[in-house]
């Protein structure tokens, strides 16, 4: 069975094979190294002209990719750690995201910025964050973060080959080795073409007791938790949109109306985050159908510690989600 990382690798390779305007830029991405997380392993050997290692200047080579996109290419940028997106934020906010709208639709910027986010590996404060919330709500870009149950390669390929708008593509680094298979019941909806939402259910008939809305790396925690709660005979649906911004709102409302208890969880830090916006949107539609306020889980608002024990305390995990669910049920 293919891993999440293999899905990413296949998505990149297919895109490079199908369209010769696809180029991949990033630090240390050529063979034999093949990228810090090996997402581009083998690709520079197959496509030496179009898989290119850059100097260490995230802002510079993101800008280069923006220029290439304006002139007919479909670049993919790898930012080695998502934490380094701060270094290319001017290019993302004031160039990449602005040009199509600011130039009255006369230009396209078909550019994908891929980057691994997330903690759990003891890398400490500057190599463990989930900074995607900085870009949520920004006009002119899409923020995508597939979980490990998504067909991540297909979504990446769609972003590179079909989407003419800029895409920020978030890959939680703990998902890379995970098998993309699951035995839990899956539904898929395609409210946003190319960026499906998947829902997992640990029951085959009846209503869910609780619905959990989450994205990205949270699937690593939630899939085993659903198994565990099945033994406890608690019906749980876990919904994972791959598009964080814009939000597949109708789909989320659809799942939200199936039960009276909702949990939203994410790995990023609490405070002006994805869950807060989502909760507000959902309250507008569901307020009189809910048995209790929506529970929101996110990382503590603090520096992510390097020490394993402290890092575990700071981040969201299956145990914390389970506790929140039982508290909501009580």
């Amino acid at each position: 069975m293919a891993s999440y990382l293999a899905g990413i690798q296949a998505g990149l390779e297919n895109a490079l094979t199908i369209n010769e305007k696809v180029v991949v830029l990033g630090e240390d991405i050529v063979d034999p190294y093949g990228g810090a997380f090996k997402a581009t392993k083998g690709l520079s050997t197959k496509f030496p002209e179009r898989v290119i290692s850059t100097p260490i200047c995230e802002g510079g080579f993101t800008g280069v990719a923006v220029g290439m996109a304006l002139r007919g290419f479909r670049p993919v940028v790898e930012i080695m750690f998502g934490d380094f997106l701060t270094l290319c934020t001017d290019q993302i906010v004031n160039h990449m995201a602005k040009f199509p709208g600011m130039f009255n639709g006369q230009v396209d910027v078909p550019l994908v910025i891929r980057t691994p986010m997330g903690g759990g590996r003891g890398y400490g404060a500057t190599h463990s964050q989930s900074l995607e919330k900085m870009f949520l709500g920004l006009p002119g870009i899409r923020v995508v973060a597939p979980c490990h149950i998504h067909s991540v390669g297909d979504i990446l390929q769609h972003a590179i080959l079909t989407d003419n708008d800029p895409v920020l593509f978030i890959e939680n680094k703990l998902l890379y080795p995970l098998d993309q298979h699951t035995h839990i019941l899956i539904e898929q909806t395609d409210e946003i073409p190319g960026y499906p939402t998947v829902a997992l259910k640990n029951f085959s008939s009846g209503k869910p007791d609780v619905t959990v809305i989450a994205y990205g790396g949270m699937s690593r925690e939630l899939v085993p938790l659903l198994d565990k709660l099945q033994i406890d005979e608690l019906n749980v649906t876990a919904v994972f949109p791959s598009s964080l911004w814009p939000v597949p709102f109708e789909t989320l409302v659809h799942y939200g109306t199936q039960c009276e208890r909702l949990v939203i969880c994410e790995e990023g830090s609490t405070g002006f985050n994805w869950g807060s916006e989502l909760a507000v949107l959902l309250y507008d539609k569901l307020s009189n159908k809910l048995a209790a306020p929506i529970v929101r889980l996110a990382a503590a608002s603090q520096v992510i510690p390097a020490a394993r024990r402290l890092e575990t305390e700071a981040l969201v995990n299956a145990e914390k989600i389970e506790n929140a669910i039982w508290e909501l049920m009580s």
């Binding site: 080579f61 800008g63 280069v64 923006v66 290439m68 002139r71 670049p75 160039h95």
Partner: peptide, 13 residues
């Protein structure tokens, strides 16, 4: 900001 963008255009051409 346009220095890297222009550089990318030159690479494209």
């Amino acid at each position: 900001g346009m220095s890297p963008v222009a550089t990318g255009m030159a690479f494209a051409e």
